[in-house]
Design a protein around this nucleic acid. Sequence first.
DNA 1: TCCTGTGAAATTCTTCACAGCC
DNA 2: GGCTGTGAAGAATTTCACAGGA
Lengths: 220, 220
Amino acid sequence: MPHLFTAARARPDPVKRIADPTVRRLSLYLRFLEEFEGAGRTTISSGELAQSGHTTPAQVRKDLSSFGSFGKRGLGYGTHDLVAHIRQILGLDRTWRLVVVGAGRMGSAIAQFPGFRDRGFHVVGIFDLDPRRIGQTLAGVTIADVCHLEADVQRLRADIAVLALPPAAAQSIATRLAQAGVHALLDFSTAPLTVPAGVTVRRMDLAMELEVLSFALTNR
Amino acid sequence: MPHLFTAARARPDPVKRIADPTVRRLSLYLRFLEEFEGAGRTTISSGELAQSGHTTPAQVRKDLSSFGSFGKRGLGYGTHDLVAHIRQILGLDRTWRLVVVGAGRMGSAIAQFPGFRDRGFHVVGIFDLDPRRIGQTLAGVTIADVCHLEADVQRLRADIAVLALPPAAAQSIATRLAQAGVHALLDFSTAPLTVPAGVTVRRMDLAMELEVLSFALTNR
DNA sequence: TCCTGTGAAATTCTTCACAGCC
DNA sequence: GGCTGTGAAGAATTTCACAGGA
């Protein structure tokens, strides 16, 4: 069956072939490490990281070992050091230019999400269809008309787009963004998108998560 | 290592032991089925469902077969029939009472999310700390003071709580909710929560998803 | 002694392939 | 002929367990 998300198939190994769950955990570890670092801890063991992230020490070590040997035996990992490594692995040693498409309640909340800017994600554009919204300012950015999406996205050199749209509109916007060279989409709408190879999509599906909770409550 | 989410361990088998990815896909299938049903289709094959959900026919059949034999060989699945079955499996043949804790931008957007009510998730309570917000009305619900959270949650008979709070506040609220008898949490804050056994937590972590995209863009 | 790094084992999840029924 | 249901095979991910360095 044609699997339409052929995303990270291009080269077989930047280092090996990293599983998605591993990447997600790295992101978690990073947050704890930053906390630990802020608290003045200079080293941390896989066990401590595991506890913070609700996982196991072996998992932590495996995750990190896909990228190199960052720890010292008998001691643990140097906090500062490991922060730097993980930031580099995740590509957080630079800033990313974000656009938000859809300036409704959800889009507005996302655009103003605290902790975007400080983590290197800069909202450089916000788009909407509604003439009453266009021209308003949100998080220091003026809402633009979605009709020049392609040109604006290229001019703004956007790396990532966040879609906060009604499901009916999401697919067409996704296609336009992909065509305009945006290779990463975060989709808050409820319909899964079909995108060209080379474009990565992550879904934030509120309804789905609630339904999983409903299942859990029903079958416990 | 003590794995703190011992949630669905209680009984070994309501029907078998359903994997999380399976449940998520069921939720997806349901949405497509409803669309198909709305379009007047009376039957659908595993191949068609697979295409909508970016998966394979075999996967669809396996997912469904964990719960019973709903299809007819040579024909496919009866659309209406399968909708009813999946709704029942997911526990969507009833309504769920939701509270939203945190009425900031994100909390407000969530509380007013379209398609909650029509999918059986009724927002029955909204809570905040800020005296300026308390007393305001959102989606027909008056924002209440978080200080009587426990009593209110019990009075409202809340099943599920959505947390849209700063990470620092999330853990304490989660603990209070669990104690008040809420067994399902949807957490939009960035810190993973530790909860008593029997409570299910789902995370919606915006920052993590962006970091996964950052990784994908960096390593392709 | 403490804790990392890592092959090997165990487990979980997906795909295959085919018997069975319409 | 077409499509489901499912055991068996295969792939991916997690856990184990232990060698090896600080």
